[in-house]
Design a protein around this nucleic acid. Structure first.
Lengths: 249, 249
DNA sequence: AGAAAAGTCTTGGCATGCCATAAGATAATC
DNA sequence: GATTATCTTATGGCATGCCAAGACTTTTCT
């Protein structure tokens, strides 16, 4: 190996560790790993990622090897991966972009609630830091997107995860505040928006039908009633009332 | 060849002619060809494109062959290309996106004038038709972007090209309205914006220095004077006063 | 005009990013 | 320990870029 070749090799292996490789694909992987991780599934398996990203496990496996080489994840073959601090940073930046964009599209441009997700999914990878700042400023540095999800701040700190439970885990008579809904299913979003249901409202489970039947739920302090199917109830997150035990008793 | 294979083959060759292949790269080529064409350089040469897109002629040549196969351009080897109606449509859609975005970023988000171009250059390829409509509506269906360039309407019709000349083609004493400036050089844009010069203002050439020296130009009905270098004067477009002959005499 | 030189264009080989499929390796389960 | 599930590897495809060699066109110089 000539001296030149040696120097080139050194540059190349250096790059493996430090250079920022930030294609949309890489960002999507980091984001997906982050989400799966924060659901408690750590380490994250190849299959879980493949399913979430709609990509074959073979392709995911190859990509994970690359991300590992780039220092974005720690990978143990056959055992799964978790984000390194660098990878976490990538994920949070993308999530910040995504949620700012959702709020911006809904608020400033009146884009229907159920369409902002798909649009943000693409834009999140291409807006500059400048544009991110301008959007955040325009919105007054918000901390929640239209689904009720928290928005990481400019330093990429995420507010404490609220202590929420899915609506379908509540017992009859329990109630709380509807804080957010998974943003990935636009059918659900359209349905909710058509029925005038948005994060921030109080909800209370009036009746649980057995065998996967719907929940009878009242909104807005009992002023509206609504039957909510099992899948939807599972996606809706609710923070329980403080000291509900006593309140109920 | 089995019947199945035959059917697949048919689908594949069909695709070659009709399917919309609209990657960012393809859109950039169409846009570049459109711009060069409307400068009168028709047919457009491989080298002109290579230079504009900062890509080697070899790569351009290969891409042009593909675009020809996709029905977006008509190509005569060694002779150059021109857009087909389909290619023109692609170009105009992208240009509409670009100019709407520039105006939107500048107006709604107060992005500095000299940065909107670079941002729009990326976003133009990824915004949905829905978002395009919302932005256009928010801006009141504008017909000019912040550089003074015309914006194609939703039916992709472009207003007549205004009868403008570059500032450096004016004689001493001639004047008109500064209507636009090439948007590709952010240095120029920053410089102009720093000196408070924007499309719509009246300009008059007070003095021409020989041998590529600067022009002495007055703005805003003589209230401000400014020396403008040759390159910049070349990029600035001006519509001459109506009946200026008499006005001067 | 005709030939050489210069300029321009295309071709062919190669690289990279990211995906797919299929086959083989490893881990988990019964 | 055999079966099943999961993961990795090998190979290949497509898009898009680069470079270098060769083909074509235009210009220039006798």
């Amino acid at each position: 190996m000539s001296i030149q070749e040696y120097a080139e090799e050194r540059v190349r292996s250096e790059r493996v560790r430090s250079e920022q490789v930030r294609s949309p694909a890489v960002e999507d992987y980091c984001k997906a790993i982050f989400v799966l991780q924060s659901r408690g599934e750590a380490p994250v398996s190849t299959n879980a990622l493949a399913q979430r990203l709609q990509i074959t496990p073979g392709s995911v496996s190859a990509m994970l090897k690359k991300l590992d080489g780039d220092g974005l994840i720690a990978r143990v073959p056959y055992r799964g991966v978790r984000l390194t601090p660098a990878g976490r940073r990538v994920a949070l930046e993308v999530i910040r972009h995504h949620r700012l964009l959702e709020l911006f599209l809904a608020e400033t441009l009146q884009m229907p609630w159920d369409r902002v997700h798909a649009e943000a999914e693409v834009l999140e990878h291409v807006i500059s830091e400048d544009l991110e700042r301008l959007i955040a400023a325009k919105l007054g540095d918000p901390t929640r997107d239209p689904h009720g999800d928290p928005i990481p701040n400019a330093e990429l700190e995420l507010p404490e995860r609220e202590n929420s439970r899915s609506l379908d885990s509540l017992e009859e008579g329990e109630g709380g505040v509807f804080v957010r809904v998974s943003d990935s299913d636009s059918e659900m979003l359209r349905y909710l928006s058509e029925h005038g249901i948005a994060p921030g409202e109080r909800v209370k489970v009036e009746e649980r039908q057995p065998f996967g039947g719907p929940l009878l739920v009242s909104f807005a302090e009992g002023r509206r009633e609504q039957a909510i199917g099992g899948q939807l109830a599972h996606a809706m997150r609710v923070t329980l009332d403080e000291g509900r035990e006593e309140a109920q008793a």
